[in-house]
Design a protein around this nucleic acid. Structure first.
Lengths: 164, 164
DNA sequence: CCGTAACAGTTGAACTTTCAACAATCCTGC
DNA sequence: GCAGGATTGTTGAAAGTTCAACTGTTACGG
């Protein structure tokens, strides 16, 4: 391991590895339970949730992609599967001929309700049960700080200096 | 959304979503930069790192799977690719005829050194630069608390009560 | 020893995600 | 209005992951 770039301190090293392992384990576990309880992947669940929160239970594909942080392609494939399963329907957008709207169907809403119960319980059990009130606040603050710089320039490769 | 199971409070809801989004954005970004800088996926990088930390630069497949949290199958495929690329070699274990040892080759070590420089810089830029000293300590503590219950019974489906 | 169970790892098929190319529509300036 | 460019979304193939079945090896009980 080279030493000439700013390496991580021991504290940082331990924190980073613990963080990686914890998130990995947590997401794997939540995924598996969601799969067992409702036959949904985290990705599918996320899509259904976002739709369910919209008035009209519908959303343009692009906006849905933004909210879920999926690529357009990934979302297209995923929604195609949800549509095949009868949980979602797509129809082309009235106001913009290029667009497509995805709509959550009753069958999908029912499944989501069932899935959400189990999923929230799991999130509580494996995550919030281990956390104090101040941990929760701290996590929100840290997460906000981390995501803010990453949020916008999501397609940029390490901008160094690029103007005039 | 049903209300009869312990739902999340508003604080928890916000923290959870921020956490999900931050981790997603962070991992995507690190993945992409690793890919651009060294042509490695996070998974491949992880494998090379673990091998590089062993005396002899080698590890049994099973132990490597444990450390990386990969399934045996995933690891098999991944190491097969690394082997095809000439970064790793496999040979069957001397002391246990069933086993296989993966060994990091010079070419792999060299690649890893290069990759590590860029990767660590990225981890610092996108993660630690946003964190205070006390954030780092808190993260380690929380991560430990979260992973500990998940660590062992990694194959269990929500044990309710199972004895006598 | 021998038969059986447990273990270590690999394999191929099914599925998901990514990547690049594409079709269709909208917008803009002339 | 219409050419050129940007935007929206889909598609098919390649790459990666998961799942279940399989091979070969070791450990154990009789």
């Amino acid at each position: 391991m080279p030493e000439d770039v700013a390496w991580l301190t021991d504290d940082e090293q331990r924190a980073w590895r613990a963080f990686l392992e914890a998130t990995q384990l947590l997401f794997h576990r939540l995924d598996r339970e969601l799969q067992q309880d409702a036959g949904l992947s985290q990705a599918e669940y996320e899509i259904l949730v976002r739709l369910s929160e919209m008035p009209g239970l519908s959303l343009r594909m692009g906006e849905l992609a933004n909210q879920t942080l999926f690529s357009r392609s990934r979302l297209s494939h995923a929604v195609a599967r949800l549509e095949a399963a009868g949980w979602v329907r797509r129809h082309s957008c009235v106001t913009d001929g290029r667009g497509t709207e995805a709509v959550l169907l009753d069958k999908g809403k029912a499944l989501l309700d069932k899935a959400a119960r189990a999923h929230v319980a799991a999130v509580r059990r494996y995550f919030f049960d281990q956390l104090s009130k101040s941990d929760v606040a701290r996590i929100e603050r840290i997460a906000d700080a981390v995501r803010e710089p990453l949020r916008d320039d999501s397609g940029a490769g390490r901008v160094v200096c690029e103007d005039v």
